[in-house]
Design a binder for these strands. Structure first.
Length: 271
DNA sequence: ACTATCCCCTGACGGC
DNA sequence: TGCCGTCAGGGGATAG
């Protein structure tokens, strides 16, 4: 559920609070999908200083002063949250980070346990990141449009969800971008005109920017590092609005399954 | 080398 | 009240 705007919101908050701070202690409360497991994970981080927190696609990357990185993925319910010390841990809390000079702990929790943190070296990180498509807010619309040409038979929805095509888009913004562009998610790439692709590319950038300005969308589980909800939910035009009136034309929003995902669109506005 | 499908997990919710 | 089935979904693994 956390997509580019949500992950970027978390990144900004983490960067602000972690930059320049030494990780004093790492406590593992519950084993997850972290690598390496257990004490090796703890030892890899304790005593390191966080130089910066970066984002690529939906990945959060802590840059440490010994040249290694902590790569994290929130998946659907992963959460970094700053909490006061001495509080009773939640049943889903997995890791507690204590930072020098910070009166709060940083807790990593994850209800569905799909998320993970991995310690990586430069080469491993470079290898991982090489598989992703362009950052949609860091390239021109034309660059994005050109990514949506092939394979011709692929559904638009499937292409938008594929991180090697364009990075950072997930189910919410795929549906929202298609609605803004007036294109049905079931359209095949080969059917799109150059103008369609360019319009879609601009819609992608527009919806991501607008959501980022609202600190993202809290559709289901997403909360930022302060436990706050994103403000973009009520500005969604189709996602999660099955049967409700389209915000353009009042026709009821339809929901189908496409690329294994719930897919929302307006049959009147989107062709 | 492709694409499509399965599956990991827990909590919320509807039906009975 | 409780039980059961269904759904939410990113992306790696696997089947085709």
């Amino acid at each position: 559920m956390p997509e580019l705007p949500e992950v970027e919101t978390v990144r900004r908050q983490l960067h602000q609070k972690l930059r320049g701070r030494k990780i004093r202690q790492v406590k593992i409360l519950k084993t997850g999908r972290e690598w390496p497991r257990g004490n090796r994970f703890t030892r890899a981080l304790q005593g390191q200083t966080v130089l910066a927190v970066r984002r690529r696609a939906k990945l959060l990357i802590w840059e440490l002063d010994n040249g290694t990185f902590v790569m994290g993925h929130l998946k659907m319910t992963g959460r970094f949250v700053f909490v006061g010390t001495g509080l009773q841990p939640d049943k889903h809390d997995r890791i507690v980070f204590e930072l020098e000079g910070l009166p709060q702990c940083l807790v990593w929790s994850d209800i569905r346990q799909f998320g993970f943190l991995k310690v990586m070296n430069t080469e491993q990180l470079k290898q991982l990141l090489s598989n992703y498509g362009p950052e949609p807010l860091e390239v021109s619309p034309q660059v994005l449009a050109d990514r949506l040409k092939t394979p011709k038979t692929r559904h638009l929805k499937a292409a938008l969800l594929n991180q090697t095509v364009i990075a950072g888009i997930g189910n919410i913004y795929a549906d929202e971008a298609c609605h803004r562009a007036g294109l049905r998610p079931s359209r095949r790439l080969g059917d799109l005109t150059s103008a369609d692709r360019l319009r879609l590319a601009k819609s992608i950038q527009q919806v991501l920017r607008e959501s980022l300005a609202q600190q993202g969308t809290s559709a289901n589980d997403y909360l930022d590092t302060n436990g706050e909800r994103g403000g973009f939910l009520e500005l969604l035009r189709v996602y999660g609005r099955e049967g409700q009136p389209c915000k353009n034309c009042q026709a009821p929003v339809k929901k189908i399954v496409l690329a294994q995902r719930g897919t929302h669109y307006c049959a009147n506005c989107q062709k």
